[in-house]
């Protein structure tokens, strides 16, 4: 009985701690994010630029999560957040927690946008969402939103 009580307390505690698992953000300037755009592993990398304040981004985000879950051996999804630093605690971390984001989230904080936007892609005008899909043999930049089917269809061309 004693053990049962202890066990219950333990379970209770572990549940609570699991719920409040802190989100640790990886925040970089563009130089720190650039390597994620040039990974040389064997996977296909799907890099989505988004922010919690961008409604079309939030709408398509689950499709990237599903893609990551369905192709976990061959695909790595990287979600590059362009959230505002003053909203990391109030918006971004709660969003990551609430939606249990499994894909890797990297935060880009670099206000000199004109210096790095063309390095991601010369065609990018700065509107989000945009997505970069690349692997060793192919690289594509998409200034558009995706449904899951569209995303999977695109992935299959790689």
């Amino acid at each position: 009985m004693k053990y049962l009580v202890l066990l219950l307390i333990f379970l209770n505690l572990s549940c609570k701690s699991d719920k409040k698992a802190p989100v640790i953000l990886e925040v970089h300037d563009f130089a720190g994010v650039a390597p994620y755009l040039e990974l040389e592993g064997s996977k296909t990398y799907v890099v989505n630029f988004w922010a919690t304040w961008c409604a079309p981004c939030v709408k398509e985000l689950p499709h990237f999560e599903t893609l990551q879950a369905n192709y976990k051996d061959s695909v790595e999804v990287i979600l590059v957040s362009l959230d505002f630093p003053h909203q990391y605690e109030t918006k971004l971390k709660p969003f990551i927690q609430k939606h249990h984001l499994k894909s890797k989230v990297v935060v880009l904080d670099d206000p000199d946008m004109n210096s790095w936007i063309p390095k991601v892609n010369p065609q990018w005008d700065g509107a989000i969402p945009v997505t970069l899909i690349y692997n060793k043999s192919k690289r594509m930049f998409y200034s558009r939103t995706f449904t899951y089917q569209e995303l999977e269809t695109e992935l299959k061309t790689f």
Partner: peptide
């Protein structure tokens, strides 16, 4: 010409 992040026009 310069580029910046912004909210896409709805």
């Amino acid at each position: 010409k310069t580029k910046a992040i912004g909210c896409s026009i709805k």
